[in-house]
Simulated assay, not measured.
Amino acid sequence: MPDQDAPARRPYLRTGKGRAAVAARLRVEYEAGASVLALAGRHDLSRSTTQRLLHEAGARMRVSRPAPRPATPEDLDALVDRWLTARR
């Protein structure tokens, strides 16, 4: 359980100018090509906080790669056939 008397970990992110300044800095770096994960690591933030700050700053988020399609039974049969053929 967190200590009630301990200071907030990042009080500058709570509200106001500090939060807006961090969000603006993240947006500049993101629009220059940095990934959300790279920004999160560089600024010691979670991925979700980084995304939230980028959204608040008005950054246009890049589309991530689509998930690969699931293998069909035919794909699996072809893989097994290739594996069996290679073992001979």
Results as ranks from 00 to 15, higher is better:
1 M>F: 00
2 P>V: 07
2 P>K: 01
3 D>L: 01
3 D>A: 05
3 D>T: 06
5 D>E: 08
5 D>Y: 09
7 P>C: 07
8 A>K: 05
8 A>W: 02
9 R>C: 03
9 R>D: 11
9 R>S: 07
10 R>W: 04
12 Y>E: 13
12 Y>A: 12
13 L>F: 03
13 L>Y: 01
14 R>T: 15
14 R>C: 11
15 T>L: 00
16 G>K: 00
16 G>M: 04
18 G>K: 05
19 R>I: 02
20 A>N: 04
21 A>K: 00
22 V>I: 14
22 V>F: 04
23 A>V: 04
23 A>N: 07
24 A>F: 03
24 A>V: 01
24 A>W: 02
26 L>S: 06
27 R>G: 05
27 R>D: 00
28 V>Q: 15
28 V>C: 10
28 V>Y: 13
28 V>F: 12
28 V>S: 15
30 Y>S: 01
31 E>A: 06
31 E>D: 15
32 A>G: 12
32 A>W: 04
33 G>E: 08
35 S>E: 10
36 V>R: 15
37 L>P: 13
37 L>D: 15
37 L>Y: 12
38 A>S: 13
38 A>T: 15
38 A>I: 10
39 L>D: 08
40 A>F: 03
40 A>K: 05
41 G>W: 07
41 G>L: 08
41 G>S: 12
41 G>K: 15
42 R>V: 02
42 R>M: 12
42 R>Q: 14
43 H>T: 07
44 D>Q: 14
44 D>P: 02
44 D>H: 14
44 D>L: 14
45 L>N: 02
45 L>Y: 05
47 R>V: 13
47 R>Q: 12
48 S>W: 14
49 T>V: 12
54 L>G: 01
54 L>A: 03
54 L>V: 02
55 H>V: 09
56 E>T: 03
56 E>A: 08
57 A>S: 04
57 A>G: 04
58 G>N: 03
59 A>T: 03
60 R>L: 08
60 R>M: 04
60 R>Y: 00
60 R>G: 14
61 M>T: 08
61 M>Q: 11
62 R>M: 09
63 V>N: 11
63 V>D: 11
64 S>G: 14
65 R>W: 03
65 R>A: 11
67 A>D: 11
67 A>C: 08
68 P>E: 09
69 R>C: 07
69 R>A: 14
70 P>H: 11
71 A>C: 08
71 A>M: 09
72 T>Y: 02
73 P>N: 10
73 P>K: 07
73 P>G: 10
74 E>Y: 02
75 D>L: 10
75 D>H: 14
76 L>T: 12
77 D>V: 09
78 A>G: 02
79 L>E: 13
79 L>Q: 15
80 V>G: 04
81 D>P: 02
82 R>H: 07
82 R>M: 03
82 R>L: 11
83 W>I: 09
83 W>V: 10
84 L>Y: 00
85 T>Y: 07
85 T>R: 12
86 A>R: 11
86 A>G: 04
86 A>M: 07
87 R>H: 09
88 R>L: 14
88 R>P: 13
